[in-house]
Write a protein that binds this DNA or RNA. Structure first.
Length: 418
DNA sequence: TCTGGGGTCCTAGGACCC
DNA sequence: TCTGGGGTCCTAGGACCC
């Protein structure tokens, strides 16, 4: 059996842990630059606030319903996530952290367990130790565990947060209840396509001939088809190192000056290089892109990107920054209002396995320098920067509703008044 | 005024090899 | 009239996830 545990309205729940006044209130969390809604409490969902809606379009609704608004606080969410995952990892030796708020556990050898009671135990433990509410779905396959989780959440009153699918009858019932577009792995495109042939729920999907699914939805759809039918097909994915690492950001305002763009790209290059070192990898290729504001139809549009080969496999901020700026110089065009830039590092290898080159010699002092900078920045909160970066804090993300980093900064720790 | 930021996997087709 | 039979690697684009 597999369990899929996910945190209810995760970002909103994190805010509530440290601010109990938010309980039973509509809460939303916004994306970077306070752009779009990316998390909603149940009360906010009930008001009809959709995922991804731009915040400025919701001003009236927010005001009239006293919706509590937060800028995203990834320091807080990331730390709360690792606490939750740590606790849940004690419930099975085999696990896959699937996203910031979801984890699969493989329950092999748990045949004698009362799964519902086990799920309840997870919920109680996580809530007691972190304050985060979770839901638990347990079923013979990963795809069915996803379905079970959805049911656990939807019928919380009856399920108490845990739902177990363990018989063919329950599989059929659960699949008939699941709309095709809500199936894990069926996105908008496939949902439309399937509805056109009168496949409206997950059960009808499992009744399609395997050959048809393979042909129309590739091997990916075929695996899902089996897994959903109750034949274990999708296995736990091992925790792998990432194959791409990116930092891409919209600016708080539009930029047309080359020097400003250089500064942005340098800053992103430094961020992304530090992420790369953090997973002990090096990269061979960097992709740099810039584009104008696609929402401004009144302005001329331009977007471009370029792949830059690095002289050797590296994770040095100095080398990666230089390459990124070289890329920028090739794609930057004067006369446009830019809104976004990004850098994606590709062709990653573990830094212990990097290929040396014959013609370029890496400056080994970089490694020592980077290590020192990383250590300083860990302790001193990103105070060490390179000359090309945003030394004067000229660029700030719009974060007008940012909560404190309660769990990772001593000087932002919560104060309790008696 | 204001519109996010990450990731993965698969396939088809082109360019190339012998 | 008729024009081989294997391969590999790379890339762009499409689908999906949170």
């Amino acid at each position: 059996m597999f369990a899929l545990i996910d945190c209810n309205n995760f970002y909103a729940s994190c805010e509530r842990v440290f601010n109990p006044e938010l309980n039973n209130q509509p809460v939303v969390v916004l994306s970077n630059n306070d752009g779009c809604v990316i998390a909603r409490s149940n009360e906010a969902k009930a008001l009809g606030i959709p995922m991804g809606q731009p915040a400025f379009q919701l001003e009236k609704l927010i005001r009239e319903n006293n919706v509590k608004v937060f800028s995203s606080n990834y320091a807080l969410y990331g730390d709360m996530s690792s606490r939750v995952m740590n606790i849940l990892s004690q419930f099975s030796p085999e696990l896959e952290v699937y996203s910031i708020d979801e984890i699969f556990l493989k329950l092999e050898g748990f045949d004698l367990y009362d799964f519902h009671a086990y799920g309840t135990q997870m919920i109680t433990t996580v809530y007691k130790n972190t304050g985060i509410p979770i839901s638990v779905g347990i079923a013979p396959t990963k795809a069915l565990a996803k379905v079970a989780n959805k049911i656990a959440k939807k019928f919380k009153d009856r399920t108490n947060g845990t739902y177990v699918i363990n018989t063919p009858e329950k599989i059929e019932k659960a699949l008939r209840w699941t709309e095709i577009g809500d199936v894990w792995g069926i996105g908008r495109r496939y949902a439309t396509k399937l509805k056109n042939i009168k496949v409206n729920n997950a059960w009808q999907f499992t009744q399609l001939p395997a050959q048809y699914v393979l042909k129309e939805m590739t091997i990916v759809g075929h695996r899902l088809h089996r897994d959903l039918s109750g034949v274990p097909t999708l296995e736990l994915d091992e925790i792998a190192i990432k194959k791409n690492i990116a930092v891409t950001r919209s600016f708080d305002k539009m930029l047309d000056d080359y020097e400003d763009m250089k500064e942005r790209v340098s800053t992103y290059a430094a961020k992304v290089s530090s992420k790369l070192r953090n997973q002990n990898s090096c990269c061979k290729v960097a992709y740099i892109f810039i584009h104008t504001n696609g929402h401004r139809e009144d302005l001329p549009q331009y977007s471009n990107g370029i792949t830059v080969q690095l002289p050797y496999s590296t994770n040095s901020t100095i080398v990666i920054s230089k390459a990124a700026l070289r890329g920028l110089s090739r794609i930057f065009k004067k006369g446009y209002q830019y809104k976004k830039a990004g850098i994606i590092l590709m062709d990653l290898t573990p830094d212990t396995e990097k290929q040396l080159t014959l013609f370029y010699k890496e400056d080994h002092r970089h490694q020592i320098l980077m290590k020192t900078i990383d250590r300083l920045n860990l302790n001193c909160f990103d105070k060490v920067k390179f000359g090309g970066q945003d030394l004067n804090h000229t660029w700030k993300m719009r974060q007008e509703h940012l909560s404190k980093r309660y769990s990772t900064r001593l000087n932002e720790i919560i104060t309790v008044k008696c």
